[in-house]
Design a protein around this nucleic acid. Structure first.
Lengths: 348, 348
DNA sequence: CTGTTAGCGCCTTCAG
DNA sequence: CTGAAGGCGCTAACAG
């Protein structure tokens, strides 16, 4: 009920409460904010009035006046439905929530134009910071945001062309180790099924892959390298092509969970015993009915660390920077190799 | 660089731009907003000044002045990492984004207290609406929000104790059909592995299950019903208990994806050929190496529909309601039965 | 075409 | 202990 005004969203304001309580809006403000400077009597009246009207303070107006931030953090991802990103989102939010910060979703759908617009929108909304997993290496929009005073932390890829904190995965090391593992098993023809060349993790993981091959004195044959797949469907097609080569690979290394799952379907359909290894662990990876090795890492931690870096920039502790801005930090999350067997599971 | 002021976040204001351009803030406002009423010359000067300062309009201040909403929508879920919720989130966001609305995450972690606090926080932040998947049937906090003028749309469960739009899944029908399917296959002892009794979908799906049994003249034995599992781990334990009964069930019906996946592990570990049917489809459901039937529906649609209902409340079209508020709407999303068979799988 | 006035909801500062 | 004035950043409404 709460007979409302049409001006705002029909919500009662501090003044409505004050009038009903027969005090000034100032007094109402103090009481409602828990300021001790108020008679028990007036306090009671104000509280009663607020309750009756169903008053809720306007967070936006408040922070506008206080010159504080909005308490909003933008989370820029390409596809929230990908478990990697939703896991990341959860990690980020779990760290932000206790600080009274809320996460705003900015889903780019892999579109660079959308990504630029979203970043601009986040800045316009005066988010206190951004956790981003940008799609491409052109990060000028993020650079602009950072330049404009909005703390930016990158997750899973490094800043390009500007300075910012970031949390990375040991892409190179993980890919190299996984490939060495395949080599140790005797595989000599290994296919690579990975994300587009423009994606940092894709190129790093490819480097780890080729590095291992070269270290073993094996050639890197472009015909066995497929990049550009963004969906499991595309990955299945790419893997199928590799398996159809005259001299098909005996093993596949996939650069992320989409490609691994896609390649899995291809291998399964081909009825081949091609060994499968992929970057990223995922639910049910242990249940696929054929051996699978994954380069695992803690996605939740990735998000948490990123959020922690961001919080430390937003709410600085200790001395308010003597003069120079604090240098950008870079955290690398380690990986481990896990092998799932239809029979069971064992970690290496 | 943009020599900043300390007041706000160090960001240049409209007045800074105006001063630099040598015009009034009003003129700057107009130019920057694309208002045609301005000389090409002054327009140029203002633009240049804005660019130089890296000016970005303050969305908050703007909407405060205009008495508009914040353009923020709260998305209340229990666990974003559950693919069901992240899928839902994506559906919601995909509909909201084109309307200039942004989604704010409110992850409750299944905690009722947290849920209440989050709803209060969302209201305080003046979100223009809320899409909620409340954890329990006590929805007084949502009722309060709705009463306070914040449009609320429930997804996957109906409002309890207040009126609101909602989008439901055909829980009863889907569960009943799936159970009938198991009965048709000759199963006479079927276990139920489901979510807590307090969860609407859990009870509805149990009803569909028991209804099918009773219609077939079979007794509903409590010993075969396990409720309360929220995680795959808990579900595995529950299923294991059922499989260890003196007269073990020959089939299991699971009420959601967490329970299905948990039960899968138990069945797999037991080396039993227990038939498995579950509510919710999920990625890799077709790859588990044993037959699995799922009650499928479009989670993305669930989110989209919910968002559409919300948008229609926020930005009403047509006549501004003659007098009575529009009645609450209830949409039900249909389900279908899908059977995944390891043997029957073909390419792609 | 441009500027002035006024105020969205709230709170800091300074009087009473 | 309480109230009045002023302004955060922005923009309708009205001047000029």
């Amino acid at each position: 009920m709460a007979d409302a005004r049409a001006a705002n969203g029909g919500k009662p304001t501090l003044r409505d409460v004050a009038e009903l309580a027969g005090v000034s809006s100032m007094t109402a403000s103090r009481v409602l904010r828990g300021d001790p400077r108020a008679t028990a009597a007036t306090r009671k009246r104000v509280q009663a009035a607020a309750d009756e009207l169903g008053y809720m303070p306007n967070h936006m107006a408040r922070s506008l006046r206080l010159g504080e931030g909005t308490g909003l953090i933008g989370l820029l991802v390409t596809n929230l439905a990908n478990p990697f990103y939703s896991q990341l989102a959860l990690g980020v939010d779990s760290v932000l929530a206790p600080h009274g910060l809320k996460t705003v979703i900015a889903n780019t759908k892999q579109d660079p134009v959308t990504e630029r617009e979203l970043v601009a929108d986040l800045v316009a909304r005066r988010v206190d910071g951004v956790v981003a997993v940008p799609a491409s290496t052109d990060q000028r929009h993020l650079a602009a945001a950072a330049e404009g005073g909005v703390p930016v932390v990158l997750a899973s890829r490094p800043p390009e062309g500007f300075e910012a904190d970031c949390v990375l995965v040991d892409d190179f090391g993980g890919a190299r180790r996984a490939t060495e593992d395949l080599l140790a098993q005797g595989h000599r023809t290994i296919g690579f099924v990975g994300s587009p060349q423009t994606v940092y993790t894709g190129t790093q993981r490819l480097k780890g892959f080729t590095d291992a091959l070269e270290a073993a004195g094996l050639p890197v044959d472009d015909r066995y390298v497929r990049q550009g797949q963004k969906t499991t469907g595309e990955a299945t097609l790419a893997a199928r092509e590799l398996l159809a080569l005259p001299d098909p690979p005996t093993a596949l290394f996939c650069s992320n969970n989409r490609n691994t799952i896609g390649a899995y379907h291809a291998v399964r359909a081909a009825g081949r015993s091609t060994a499968l290894t992929g970057f990223d662990d995922f639910e049910l990876a242990d249940a696929l009915g054929l051996p699978l090795t994954v380069v695992a890492y803690d996605t939740d931690q990735l998000g948490r660390r990123a959020a922690e870096l961001l919080v430390s920039r937003i709410r600085p502790t200790g001395q308010p920077s003597p003069g120079e801005p604090r240098p950008p930090r870079r955290i690398t999350v380690p990986t481990s190799l896990i092998t799932y067997n239809p029979a069971g599971r064992q970690a290496l």
